[in-house]
């Protein structure tokens, strides 16, 4: 299993591989087809946010394992001018430049955890996570592997 995937973002064409990589990693982590689509959609939104507000940046997608759950963490970072009035930008129905305002609130609703750090000097970092519970069988297999 791959644990980290990096996708550089510098134009809208880069959203296509970003969605595909995110979906593939989600499936490798055992997420359902529906969850993989929700994740790919959220990735598409935050990657577009990079292109529109900062022109270029990077996505880092990481699979993590905890005793009772698996997670997919996606960090989107750019060195752009930051997002002014981030709280407003995260409200439902807010529209910004090029009317792409549904992106961030939409991505937030698609994921389980969602956090934005934005600063005019440092740029913007969005960290979002989707979780899935490990079922009994997976926990049993993990315990057996540990004993072996």
């Amino acid at each position: 299993m791959r644990h980290e995937v990096r996708v550089p973002i510098s134009s809208d064409a880069d959203l296509v591989p970003a969605r595909a990589e995110g979906r593939a990693l989600a499936r490798e982590l055992g997420f359902s087809q529906t969850d993989a689509t929700l994740i790919a959609t959220a990735i598409s939104e935050i990657a577009r946010n990079i292109v529109v507000h900062a022109r270029s940046g990077e996505l880092v997608m990481t699979g993590i394992q905890q005793p009772h759950r698996y997670g997919l963490v996606i960090v989107a970072s750019d060195a752009g001018p930051g997002i002014p009035e981030i709280d407003t930008a995260l409200e439902r129905g807010h529209t910004s430049r090029r009317s792409l305002g549904l992106g961030l609130p939409g991505a937030r609703r698609l994921m389980d955890e969602f956090e934005v750090e934005t600063d005019a000097a440092k740029g913007t970092t969005v960290t979002m996570t989707k979780w899935r519970a490990r079922d009994e069988l997976e926990r049993l297999r993990a315990r057996r592997r540990e004993r072996a």
Binding site: T37, L38, R92, G93, G106, R109, L110
Partner: peptide
């Protein structure tokens, strides 16, 4: 429009 795509679309205030 596939079922999983439809579920994702509902999350946007479109």
């Amino acid at each position: 429009i596939e079922p999983d795509v439809a579920i994702a679309m509902v999350q946007f205030d479109l």
